[in-house]
Design a protein around this nucleic acid. Structure first.
Lengths: 176, 176
DNA sequence: ATAGAACGTTCCTTAAAAGGAACGATGAAA
DNA sequence: TTTCATCGTTCCTTTTAAGGAACGTTCTAT
């Protein structure tokens, strides 16, 4: 059974806060909670109340579950930053990510569930992407959809690449 | 900003519990929390801990936010909520948005600059979208690209729709 | 009826989350 | 330099959510 990880909550909180350019004190004041409270949460300690989470979610302008939902991304590889934007609750299940790749980086991705497809739109930079052996090179504004139930890769040349990425699990929908 | 309503949480809890045919005692035991705790929550009192909500969500097998999200979610003025995710700095310029539309909502959008195109991917729900008079209906996971230099619209039926949207401002410089 | 079991509620206690005021560290302005 | 503001953290106190054991009620079976 799924266990609640307080660490990811803290990471998400801090990440979202920094993206907004807010200091810990500012966010705490804006949300109407104590600094000490927010500090603990970002450190991964504590077990916040619904009221506390709600106030933070409102201030950070994120759908409620986003703060808590664990990032289901292998991530870790250097030069690649991935953010979970949203998780669809319909069938088929759809996960939406924002992704940024450093120059001269190759990310190999494992196959997803059978039938899964990825759609992506390049926001800036250039990116070679697709199933291994059948990749395509995209420029800013281009979109591509490909089968993601085989090993696939993302590769940048000498420029940064930023993109939106959605994974559609057309197979039996998994709940998380 | 929106205030947290504990009443709706209680209603949702009870509704989901009854749908599953569980007694209050059973659910509390299965989730590993005290009966008194669950009883208070269903009555709309109390302010549950993240741990408590999590355990209930797991037992009821609902995505986390569902328990808390009121029937009507924080929406923009016209039932449409839009968040800017990213702005490309390359050529062509690309703006990335996250967008959510309430049921039975129609949003008319003005034409963008000549040559502009929109690409969108539906994360959940259903959406009729496209240039006025030439719309398409999308389901979760579907993607669509259309010319956005004409008046276009987004329309939902009886379901919420969540989607990623990118606007590509294809200037004079043609993309190779 | 009567005993038993399960239901949901209401107390009281206890563990812990939130608030508040320190603290040292850092950075900018006088 | 010195001063002042703000940063994030760490205590300690206060508030309160969660646990536990009653309770009255309802239903079933004996």
């Amino acid at each position: 059974m799924d266990k609640l990880s307080l660490g990811t909550l803290g990471q998400h909180l801090q990440q979202l806060r920094l993206e907004k350019g807010l200091s810990l004190s500012q966010l705490a004041a804006a949300a109407g909670i104590a600094k000490s409270n927010l500090s603990r949460l970002e450190q991964g300690n504590g077990n916040p109340t619904l009221d506390t989470i709600w106030r933070l979610a409102v201030q950070l302008n994120v759908p409620f579950g986003t703060l808590v939902a664990p990032i289901r991304v292998p991530l870790g590889e250097e030069g690649v930053e991935v953010r979970l934007l949203d998780q669809g609750k319909d069938t088929p299940q759809v996960d939406a990510y924002w992704m940024r790749c450093a120059p001269h980086t190759t990310r190999h991705a494992e196959p997803h569930t059978p039938g899964a497809r990825e759609s992506l739109t390049l926001i800036s930079g250039r990116l070679e992407v697709g199933p291994e052996g059948a990749t395509t090179t995209l420029a800013a504004g281009d979109t591509l959809t490909f089968a993601a139930d085989r090993p696939h890769l993302y590769r940048t040349d000498d420029a940064w690449a930023t993109l939106l990425l959605t994974v559609v699990y057309t197979g039996e929908g998994g709940t998380s």
